[in-house]
């Protein structure tokens, strides 16, 4: 129990952010027309590519002789980048097609 209280006190700021972000996420999506569901999903997909930041931190924090951590980290950065770059580019391509006719 004390551990939990300590945890909450230590991470209060993050807990606030989590709760507020949940509401922001819900509010933002609100009433989106069905037409935009796919691009929106794709855009959100690209944003969770932010996990690449974590992968980079792993690599930066690795010992230079820890081959296993470095190679797994390498793959993690690569896959995360794929997620980010591919995600944003594909979303842009979808939306580009919407735009032409205006």
């Amino acid at each position: 129990m004390t551990e939990l209280i300590e945890f909450i006190t230590a991470n209060l700021q993050m807990i606030y952010i989590v709760i507020l972000m949940i509401f922001v996420g819900v509010e933002i999506i609100g009433h989106v027309p069905a037409v935009l569901h796919t691009p929106l999903m794709s855009g959100a997909n690209a944003i969770h590519g932010v996990v690449v930041v974590g992968a980079i931190l792993v690599m930066l924090g690795s010992e230079p002789d820890n081959i296993l951590a470095l190679s797994l980290g390498f793959v993690a950065v690569l896959l995360g980048t794929l997620n980010v770059v591919g995600g944003f580019v594909v979303t842009d391509r979808m939306l580009e097609m919407f735009k032409k006719k205006k």
């Binding site: 996420g25 819900v26 999506i29 989106v32 999903m41 959100a44 997909n45 969770h48 932010v50 996990v51």
Partner: peptide
């Protein structure tokens, strides 16, 4: 999953991005 990474590192951008997609994705 990304947000949990953010929690681990105390990394705000992972936390906000991850939670945002998590909640927006659920609503979607």
């Amino acid at each position: 999953a990304a947000a949990l990474g953010g929690f681990l590192y105390g990394n705000m951008v992972m936390l906000t991005g991850g939670i945002l997609v998590g909640s927006a994705g659920t609503i979607l």
